[in-house]
């Protein structure tokens, strides 16, 4: 015990876990409120207003209510899988926080395969959605889950190819090195196509409108979480918003310079503020898109991925490779 309790590895791990848990919950509470406010203002109405100042306590009331609701287990549902799915959907999102570079030195673990880790774990979310849809033993839930899998398989490929073109330039899968590389010029200027493809695919990956066909209300009652009541639904909801934060944080560090200011001008603002500012701006853009565009049809969605996004991202990666080789 030469270093004492504070310096030990276990202390760091537990502290990191606590901070991540608290941050992800607070972040989700804030994002749900923000979503309703953005939706309201885009539709010329105020949104939540009366529960707390400007409705700030609205999501807390919603959360307490969801905890107090009855948990229904459908008659023919698979008991174990039905309750496992909401837990499974929330765990991989937490792992993503392990490698997010909030600022220089403010990373829980700077792994040399950080980018790979985030995307590998975010794929488990799809498995959890499929589990939930299957275990509900409900035709709408199953259809929603199957759609989610088809959509995620289609959009994972352009997403990873877009990320790969950044990795090719930096020669590293570590978030810290990728952010360090963008000290003067962000990757969105060097790789605009990859950045755009990443943002579109990330919207589809988090099942957000206009790609929210797994939970399309007009066709499948509520999609994969049709049979979930109370906190089971609440966890799916929390996971969606935390996932959105992760996706936008990854976009920030891969394409928008992470903790760096624009063109190397940081204005003396600490890196973590730059990082959060850019991340929340991207989240706002995703919400903006959700409340502006109508939901796409399933065939349009698939065609767009396989016929447009994948060829474009493949071409992008080949050109990137050639340019990197020449320079």
């Amino acid at each position: 015990m030469s270093e004492g309790l504070l310096g030990s590895e276990w202390f760091r791990l537990i502290l990191g876990l606590l901070i991540v848990l608290a941050f992800s919950q607070l972040n989700a509470l804030f994002l749900v409120w923000l979503e309703r406010k953005v939706a309201g203002h885009l539709q010329l109405r105020p949104g939540p207003m009366e529960v707390g100042p400007h409705g700030l306590l609205q999501t807390i009331a919603d959360g307490v209510k969801l905890v107090g609701k009855e948990l229904i287990l459908p008659f023919k549902a698979d008991r174990k899988l039905f309750f496992l799915a909401p837990v499974m959907v929330f765990m991989p999102v937490l792992v993503g926080f392990l490698v997010l570079p909030f600022s220089r030195g403010l990373i829980i673990r700077d792994m040399n395969v950080g980018v790979l880790l985030v995307f590998a774990f975010s794929t488990i979310t799809v498995l959890a959605i499929l589990t939930g849809g299957w275990a509900s033993n409900n035709k709408y839930a199953l259809l929603g889950a199957v759609r989610s899998v088809a959509q995620n398989v289609a959009y994972e490929i352009p997403l990873l190819l877009a990320v790969l073109s950044v990795v090719l330039v930096v020669h590293s899968l570590s978030f810290a090195k990728i952010v360090e590389y963008q000290k003067t010029v962000w990757f969105i200027f060097l790789q605009p196509l990859a950045g755009l493809i990443y943002l579109i695919a990330a919207t589809a990956e988090t099942n957000r409108a206009p790609f929210d066909i797994p939970e399309a209300e007009s066709e499948l009652v509520a999609g994969f979480h049709t049979e979930y009541s109370g906190m089971g639904f609440g966890l799916f909801f929390l996971a969606e918003y935390t996932n959105m934060f992760i996706v936008c944080a990854v976009a920030t560090s891969l394409f928008f310079g992470g903790w760096n200011g624009l063109f190397g001008i940081s204005l003396g603002i600490p890196g973590v503020f730059w990082f959060l500012l850019k991340t929340y701006f991207l989240i706002f853009v995703i919400m903006w898109v959700r409340w502006t565009f109508p939901r796409v049809r399933f065939d349009q969605l698939m065609n767009f991925s396989w016929k447009v996004m994948i060829p474009l991202s493949l071409a992008n990666i080949v050109i990137t490779a050639i340019v990197v080789k020449i320079i």
Partner: peptide, 19 residues
């Protein structure tokens, strides 16, 4: 937009009776 049930927190129309 003119009346907006969401002001009093009742605007989340859930499609599924479970929620």
């Amino acid at each position: 937009s003119r009346f907006d049930l969401d002001r009093i927190g009742a605007g989340v129309f859930r499609p599924s009776p479970r929620q």
